[in-house]
């Protein structure tokens, strides 16, 4: 946390090193969050790219007092919501299935993940958006329920309810597929 405060301070002053450190520190967790929310690695990659580029450009006016990871996670969620709305406009209603990355020619130029991660992500896609957000923000971004409640503009009780419903659903869907 202290490191994040220092990074924020240095980033605001235009430090390239601070930005690189923030990027390295949070790239994968934001990628995981975006992939979990979207169930689509290509779109997740785009979202994370946009979030970090926008973040980099915000240095002159950057004034976030809360946690850096919370800020980035919120940015990811907002962009994911934007994409969902756009997708719904063109919606065909079908649920895409996430596949282990094979598309790019060079493996290093891809998002890497396991079959099990793909399966969990696919199951996550069955959850209503609000529940999926809560579960992922809590478990992959480590956000507090209070902050998630602020983001979703609902009460903390509602958020905790969504978390419980989401987990219960995952428990039934993943039964036997994950190690106890």
């Amino acid at each position: 946390m202290l490191e994040d405060e220092l990074l924020k301070w240095e980033f605001r002053r235009g430090s390239r090193e601070a930005l690189a450190r923030i990027y390295e520190k949070y790239l994968d967790s934001m990628l995981t969050l975006a992939a979990g929310l979207l169930n689509d690695v290509g779109q997740a990659q785009d979202v994370v790219h946009d979030v970090f580029v926008s973040f980099a450009k915000s240095a002159p006016s950057f004034g976030v007092r809360g946690s850096l990871s919370g800020y980035l996670a919120t940015s990811v969620v907002n962009r994911v919501r934007d994409r969902r709305r756009r997708t719904r406009r063109q919606a065909d209603g079908s649920t895409k299935r996430i596949e282990p990355a094979r598309e790019p020619a060079a493996p290093d130029d891809a998002v890497i993940f396991t079959e099990q991660a793909a399966r969990i992500s696919q199951v996550m896609a069955e959850l209503p958006d609000e529940q999926r957000e809560v579960v992922l923000l809590r478990l992959t971004a480590g956000m507090k329920f209070r902050d998630i409640a602020r983001l979703q503009q609902v009460s903390i009780n509602t958020v905790q309810g969504r978390y419980r419903y989401g987990l219960n659903h995952l428990r039934s869907m993943l039964n036997g597929e994950v190690d106890e």
Binding site: L27, D28, V41, A110, I112, A117, I120
Partner: peptide, 8 residues
């Protein structure tokens, strides 16, 4: 286990 990583 839900982990997505960017290649180098």
């Amino acid at each position: 286990k839900l982990r997505f990583t960017a290649g180098s």
